[in-house]
Design a protein around this nucleic acid. Sequence first.
DNA 1: GCCGTTTTCGGCCCGACTGTTTTCAGTCG
Length: 591
Amino acid sequence: MAHHERSFLPDNESIARMLEETSLCYEMAGVAFKPRAYERAAAAVRALAEDVCAVYRKHGREALDALPGIGPSIAQHIADICDHGSFAEYEELKRRFPVAVRELTAIEGLGPKRLRTLYEMFGVRTIDDLKTLLEKKSHKLAGIPGWGEKTVARLREGLALTQKAQGRQPLGFILPLAERVAARLREVPGVREVQIVGSFRRKKETVGDIDILVATSRPQLLAREVVSLPEVTYVHQQGPSRTSVRLTFGMDMDVRAIEPERWGAALLYFTGSRAHNIHLRTYAESLGYKLNEYGLFQGKRCVAVRTEEEVYEALGMQYIPPELREDQGEIEAALAHKLPDLVPYGSLQGDCQVHSNWTDGTLSIEAMARAAYESGLSYIVLTDHTKALAMTGGLDEAALARQRREVEKVNRAFRREGREFRVVHGAEVNILKDGTLDVSDKALARLECVGVGVHSYFTLSPKEQTRRLLRAIEHPLVDIFFHPTARIIGKREPIAFDVETVLEACARTGTALDIDSYPDRIDANDALVRRALQKGVRLVVSTDSHAPQHLSYRELGLGQARRGWAGAKDILNTQPVDRFLASLKRSRALS
DNA sequence: GCCGTTTTCGGCCCGACTGTTTTCAGTCG
Ligand SMILES: Nc1nc2c(ncn2[C@H]2C[C@H](O)[C@@H](COP(=O)(O)OP(=O)(O)OP(=O)(O)O)O2)c(=O)[nH]1
Ligand SMILES: [Mg+2]
Ligand SMILES: [Mg+2]
Ligand SMILES: [Zn+2]
């Protein structure tokens, strides 16, 4: 085939969406098992740090086939997408169901089967079509089997609610709200234990809803209390064991009640992920067990239920930390007793990216340092912006020199007080369009730690962007590559570059990759961390704090590091300051 | 369509809530 190479390759997200659409169309068609296969393949594409098309171009179709959940057929489909923008089966399904399946099935209560009826009987292809049908022609639905009055009313409400929904939100922004609701539930009589579970417990970068598990002796009372919480604006469902509601800030909340004795099995179920649960249950079945939220059973006999540890143990596995439960190889690793020792929470000794009011931070260097000290750290790297970021009052070489004297003054104060804390003088230096930096080498050499980041020219071609990043990473005085994709969740797409090449450059030069923990950055994220570790890249965790309350975001960064299978030894700032400094590129070059 | 857990061919997680189809389908967690 004379295949002309497309210059703008589809990104992983759009490929994953095509695979999901295929899955939904097969569900509409009533085909069994293929939907799950396409759904798994979509998840595999999303879990990839590299562009799947780049993998295909570099390593061929076999490399796609080797990915878990992707076999020969879907590998060919992906190859076709990369080469031609689509694949035959997809086009065929879209001809049969020329319907906005993802948008329409996102409506609460509307799934593939009902959508098929709406399309085939009333020609509903879009949300607007559905609105018209429900607003102006709903009499047409009367008398259709399975479309009673209440069903139609629920669909109408579902549509309105879905349009008002906020969508996925950064974990760090929603966590305080979820904790407030959880605290209220702890006050309900009969309640023994309350835990926020689902994607919160797994520390996913964004959360789609709030899932709360409650151990209680009085489930009915709990349900009544849930629906009368002040934050609740709508009740989706209310049964003896599960209540589902919409909250004031546009998120849904699922509360699951369970008998206290069944805590472990229920926690396992409600923590997920769905893919992890399915895999675990399938494996349990192969051993002759049945696993559900009430326990692990052999016939009628309950084999394990009290704790998650018991359940994993009974299945012959190591305990799998929640952050790994994505069906990305953790079950196989746990069976082989080869899970990594994940970096513990609370194990950071320093914060590698902190701003002061010398640029766009809110506090003085000293005040920020004291806040960091109080929060339990023993050092921060002060990383104010440099001059190309004019709107932040970025520092030039002279200002950096003045700032150094201030840093030393603060450090002397800590020493005088006998407090084990120091400010490391660094900067967040801009990578210019051509990969050069906006500060002279002489000034960089005088700093103790230099981080670089992209703050401009976000939309260069992947080739240009890669060349730009390589030049910065290869600079001998650059220690850390900050927020590597520069994405801002909900606001700015990640920059496009050749991930493999850039990570190899980091590994080769000893440049550390940053996990920026600010909630709408989370950059590097889980997928990129995992790929970086496979390439031998070293990491740091930073908060990008501009105010003292941001310092606690470092635990989110650790959560993401854990999701990327990182251990303490992979993260430079789990070390005390001397060893941290000695492990930076600039020091290693000297020794 | 994928995969090796019993199986390279045969099986694919399991349960809650809703509406209305008197026995279950659809949707969702
Ligand atoms: N066994 C099983 N468990 C499921 C299924 N769907 C969801 N769960 C469990 C695992 C999920 O983590 C948990 C909560 O469901 P959610 O839909 O809220 O998903 P989750 O919180 O993982 O992600 P989210 O951020 O809400 O999109 O319920 C399923 O199909 N089967
Ligand atoms: Mg959830
Ligand atoms: Mg949920
Ligand atoms: Zn920055």
